[in-house]
């Protein structure tokens, strides 16, 4: 019986991961469909909470979410199986691409396509940056805006280590949660 659950977990996450283009949040609604609506392994509210944890934790959201689902359904062993299911598709696909990459890259047409797609990626990332940036500026709080510009200057012009910036901002976030200043926080 347990084996059946393991197999099902592996196949489900493998399928989901193989279909998740663009990564990140895309996998959440897919998981919701699979594990909440179809298999009834997780309650809807619980899935929302698991999503919050997946987002709050470091690492890829898809990986985090599968760990949580696996852990919830079948403990640590379940988590290991879902991680494997999630990681294998990209591992296999990228490995195959990597082997052809050099020959691929020297091809004139591929080169044209890649140059075009780089401009496309740049557009996609600018779109993401603007959407994410908006959510910071719309809150009309001074602190996040200051943190944004300070981090941008620190990473872009002062070449300060990214990890150091993240750690400092984590501390700022923690202090801000514990002592929400009267002046900054909106009621």
């Amino acid at each position: 019986m347990k084996q059946k659950i393991f197999i099902k977990l592996f196949l489900s996450t493998f399928q989901l991961s193989a279909c998740t283009f663009g990564g990140g949040f895309v996998i959440i609604p897919l998981m919701q469909k699979k594990f909440v609506d179809e298999l009834h392994w997780i309650e809807e509210q619980e899935m929302m909470d698991l999503t919050a944890i997946a987002q709050s934790s470091p690492g890829a959201i898809a990986v985090n979410a599968s760990i949580l689902v696996g852990y919830h359904v079948a403990g640590v062993m379940g988590a290991l199986i879902t991680v494997l299911g999630t990681v294998l598709p990209p591992l296999i696909i990228i490995s195959v691409i990597s082997f052809f990459y050099t020959a691929f890259r020297d091809n004139v047409i591929v080169n044209m396509a890649m140059t075009g797609m780089l401009a496309g990626v740049a557009a996609v990332i600018c779109d993401v940056v603007i959407t994410m940036g908006k959510s910071i500026f719309q809150k009309k709080r001074v602190l996040p805006i200051v943190v944004f510009f300070a981090s941008l200057v620190a990473v872009r012009f002062m070449k300060i280590n990214i990890i150091l910036i993240i750690l400092i901002c984590a501390v700022i976030g923690a202090v801000d949660t514990l002592y929400p200043g009267r002046k900054g926080r909106q009621a």
Partner: peptide
Amino acid sequence: LKMVQGVLTGLRPAVVAMITSAGITLVIMA
């Protein structure tokens, strides 16, 4: 997870700033 979420909220502007910087590099690259 109030504390965790607080830390995450505090980190968000910094994360966006770093993505912005990497995005600028990619635009220059393109």
